[in-house]
Amino acid sequence: MNPETRLLEQARCFDLTALGEIYDCYSPGVFRYAIRLLGETDLAEECVAETFSRFLKALHNGGGPKDYLQAYLYQVAHHWITDYYRRQPLPDLPLDEAFANDQDDPAKTAVENIDRERVRAALLLLTPEQRQVIVLKYLEGWENEAVAALLEKPLGSIKSLQHRALEALRRILLPAREENVSGRKAYE
């Protein structure tokens, strides 16, 4: 029995030591995942709290993960974020002009912040699965196989999702160049 499985067995008995160990081990990653997508610390903390609360409820009902606890917690957090944005109006892409005129702005940090907000907003325009693939692969550094296991999809589907997600992000984040590419395609 691997350590994670043993930890889960103890957690099913609501062993506080085991539960505390799980929180210490996995809550930082969940917070990181949440803050990248939500952009607000308070919202990310709320996401973490709700994720672990749902985990407890699942254990109490005899459910919860049998293995891959980290993937389970990321999935719960992902659903919470998706639900959160479903309740919110989709954000406009902010400050295009500011991004375009970043050379006029001496405050590099401010530009970086603007970039992050644009990317975050673009991610929210993707489908939940596309967004999850991009975040897990490029932000969390997961391998395609791990992402496939989490989403319970074949590896080919994950690659396809990734490809479509990048295309969508290109259209959203690089619209001018996308037009150039389209024109070049037509010319060719």
């Binding site: 970039d115 990317v119 991009i134 490029y138 932000l139 990048l166 992000l169 290109r170 984040l173 690089l174």
Partner: peptide
């Protein structure tokens, strides 16, 4: 695009 996305890692 990936470089842009990776800005969120910070």
């Amino acid at each position: 695009i990936v470089s842009l996305v990776k800005k969120l890692q910070q």
